[in-house]
Design a protein around this nucleic acid. Structure first.
Lengths: 248, 248
DNA sequence: CGCGCCTTTGAAGGAGCTCAATTTAGGTGG
DNA sequence: CCACCTAAATTGAGCTCCTTCAAAGGCGCG
């Protein structure tokens, strides 16, 4: 069932134990206030870990759905394809976030998930998750919240795509990244983009040239310092003002 | 807790019995193959019905979340608001569809739900739903699928907003409505739009004038016949071709 | 029957796209 | 370790599709 080109970390006693109870991303993936007992059960829910190299697919649209995935380290994008070849990046995901929920509704995944850097994920067989969340109320609630959060996030993207101009979209994008990096203990102001201008553009409904121009404009205006994929935010308030002070 | 201007249909024994087991939308709301016993349990999950008049809010962004809602009859829109006043319609919902899942992630709803015609909804207290889906596996699975379907739908809208030109967006919109009306036993080719050009435009990321022009263009080209809110699709294949034969 | 809201249509303007050329960075093999 | 090579990013110029602004027409509701 697993791809030969994806390295599987076998479930020894020690890696098993480490699955969730030892994981420093626990507060991102799991609810608070679980008992020792419950955490042990959840540990056993995580089937295997899997490492992916940059540009490897975690899953593809059309593949059978069996599990969802928690990102332990690394960075992903998800995208959907139209028959005529057009595609759209639907999201960028980082450590502690969940991938694969698009597959629950049908038998198969509806989008592709691709690692944008070498990454490690925890495989959570979905049948097992459903079984456990019938037993552990906090887990059930948490999973529902994770799915709902994805819906709310999508609404935000729809708002961005539907009503914002190019520079507002990019500002919103940068602020969102900054906030998520911060939540993971990284600098809010300085980070490396894992994706290309083209991928940013696809996500934001813009062409890569427009993204590039907006970056340059932000730099001229002193909001950020850009050097290729390296971003330093110099004026967070300024970026936020771009969003609220609606330019029509 | 309920709004004084919303009529509540009290839960008498007869309305209760009618809740799901007698409902002709059952196959849209609920999984197949439930036992008599399970359906009875689910019947009891539906708290009350509520009628809403055109333009009434079912819930508003910021209101506490307590229940999700199944549309028994009528038509709704959901929209999100930005601080600066811009808003975006995130969806149109019809009979058999579920509203309110945006509220699960936090304590409160994140969007507004407004009836676009006189409607009737079933209130499903969320705590009750979670309780029951811990007992009835098919219900649990079904609810997960409903949430996942919403995520997949949102991805489709993102694709539409991110990559399609105006006429493609409108064609996709009409085809989607047609397909959903068909699934409900209505004509695939002839229907009344419940929303204004402005609301369609908001949903599609276009201005109302652009929507109007695209309607006129479709009529000129013989794809549809429009008279205000009344739509008759004359050439479904033509509309579909607009989507796949990517212009550019 | 009149008023307001929704819709349609026209004309001009602009934001972002397309096409194209150049620069830069990162990876690879000698 | 350096030179090469290719993919990614930047920047410019012209164009296009959608928006904006404006005015007129139509439908529904009180």
């Amino acid at each position: 069932m697993h791809k030969p080109n994806q390295s599987i970390i076998p479930l020894t006693l020690s890696t098993l134990k480490a699955a969730c109870s030892q994981c420093n991303l626990r507060e991102l993936c799991l609810p608070y206030g679980l008992s020792e007992d419950e955490i042990e059960q959840i540990d056993s829910m995580v089937g295997v870990r899997r490492r992916l190299k940059r540009q490897q697919h975690l899953y593809r649209a059309g593949e059978g759905f069996e599990a969802i995935y928690a990102i332990r380290s690394g960075f992903f994008k998800t995208d959907v394809l139209l028959e005529d070849g057009r595609d759209q990046v639907t999201g960028f995901q980082m450590a502690g976030e969940i991938l694969g929920m698009d597959g629950i509704s049908g038998e198969t995944h509806t989008c592709n998930a691709v690692a944008l850097e070498d990454s490690e994920i925890c495989v959570i067989p979905f049948a097992h998750l459903e079984h456990l969340s019938r037993e552990i109320q906090a887990l059930q609630r948490h999973f529902h919240q994770v799915m709902s959060r994805e819906i709310v996030r999508d609404h935000g993207v729809m708002m961005l795509l539907g009503t914002m101009r190019a520079e507002e979209r990019l500002a919103a994008f940068l602020l969102n990244l900054s906030q998520r990096f911060t939540a993971r203990g990284y600098s809010p102001a300085e980070f490396h983009l894992r994706m290309t201008r083209d991928e940013i553009g696809s996500y934001l409904g813009l062409k890569l040239e427009t993204v590039s121009r907006a970056f340059s404009r932000f730099q001229e205006d002193g909001f950020i310092a850009v050097q290729q994929k390296h971003i330093r935010i110099l004026d967070i308030a300024g970026l936020k003002a771009l969003l609220t002070h609606q330019a029509i």
